[in-house]
Design a binder for these strands. Structure first.
Lengths: 216, 216
DNA sequence: GTCAGTGACTGACTTGCGGTCAGTTTGAGG
DNA sequence: CCTCAAACTGACCGCAAGTCAGTCACTGAC
């Protein structure tokens, strides 16, 4: 039965084609501008077919986000290898996350939507479980970097890595959220400010807060 | 023409009634659960009437949020008066903001929606200009506290108050965003963690980052 | 007293979009 | 050829925001 194998390949290919279409539209029109009708049109399928591959819109978005994290992870992992200390690793990790986010501004809004959403996003789908796993992996990299820093002495010994990782992650998300909308923010925040320096400023604060030695 | 004055009062009262209805529904069902039909029903008006008082849903939400900030501001301002130093003031300001947010969990999601929203939220309405002004006022309190800290020596002299205030504000928003959804987060974040300590942990980091002296 | 004018209000309707499902097409196996 | 199943289709549904032509109630001029 080589047929079944080919069917499976074709199914995977279709799925990828739908993801490509969705990703393209998200990049063009933003997360909210992406419409299921548009995805169907772009992927040259009917709308109903989309629902044979993804339970609903949120599941499709989760799958797109998962693919993006999978592309980001190698960069982050290599950045961690280049780091001289654990403290340096934390800094590089966050910086890489932000750089990648800046290149894919619309997609990562998904993560923010999810966190900001109280109830409205459907995170019960299988696609979402997978996404959740990737988030966990990202967090574990932060935890590992913190532990590494405690071992090499660059990070204070009295911190608890897991809660601290979550604090780093959530506070950084706020910064990224604003950084994502630099142009819009300029009008949005009712004072003139150079948002370009926001991320370096935040990272500086992170280093000061974590550092075992005196601040530079 | 006492008639015009009475008409004006009645108009204001209607507007307040609509705001009350909207706020009640947001508190009950969350920001996304609030429906214009529901607001009309609760306020004992027809839906069309709502649009005589508010340009659209977003404008109505902005007006609700504005009212809430107006209730929060006195608390924050008295907290600033109680503060012993500028550094202490920053800490108290953020803490009060979080406490109030925790009591009104749904409403402040509006701020997050707005910041996280790339394009979808209509912030061109008059109600939104007013809301924007309140946000600016909040920010100015942070700036003032930072300057106070630099004067009394509790905060490093080399920081630039305005960008730093924005960094403080945005990073804290990320923490609040997660703190708002404590219950949901427990399932959402794929690791077990006590989110209750997230805010204190963050505030500790803020103090370490801003402090002119050594960390405690 | 009455009646035209004005602002407040109404609710049926339109629109946009996520999601559904009964029916059609395709192609492998007999 | 015929049969069966999987893939696919697109007309349709429900929901909620937003619109607008029409009604109502009060006011003040005559």
């Amino acid at each position: 039965m080589a047929v079944a194998a080919r069917r499976e390949r074709e199914r995977t290919a279709r799925r990828e084609a739908i993801l490509d279409a969705a990703q393209e539209l998200i990049a063009e029109q933003g997360y909210h501008g992406m419409r299921m009708d548009g995805v169907a049109e772009t992927a040259e399928l009917s709308k109903g077919t989309l629902y044979l591959y993804f339970e609903n819109r949120d599941a499709l978005c989760a799958a797109v986000a998962t693919r993006l994290i999978d592309r980001l992870l190698p960069f982050i992992e290599s950045a961690l290898e280049d780091a001289s200390t654990g403290l340096d690793a934390v800094q590089r990790l966050l910086q890489k996350y932000y750089d990648f986010t800046e290149e894919n501004p619309h997609h990562f809004r998904f993560a923010i939507e999810w966190l900001g959403a109280g109830e409205r996003m459907d995170d019960s789908t299988e696609a979402f479980q997978i996404y959740r796993g990737r988030v966990g992996h990202m967090l574990s990299l932060v935890v590992a970097s913190l532990q590494r820093g405690q071992t090499d002495g660059s990070i204070r010994a009295d911190i608890d890595p897991l809660p601290q990782a979550i604090q780093l992650w959530t506070s950084f998300l706020g910064v990224v959220m604003v950084g994502l909308n630099k142009e819009a923010m300029a009008q949005r925040i009712p004072v003139p400010v150079d948002l370009e320096q926001l991320v370096p400023l935040h990272l500086d604060g992170v280093v000061r807060a974590l550092s075992s030695g005196g601040a530079s």
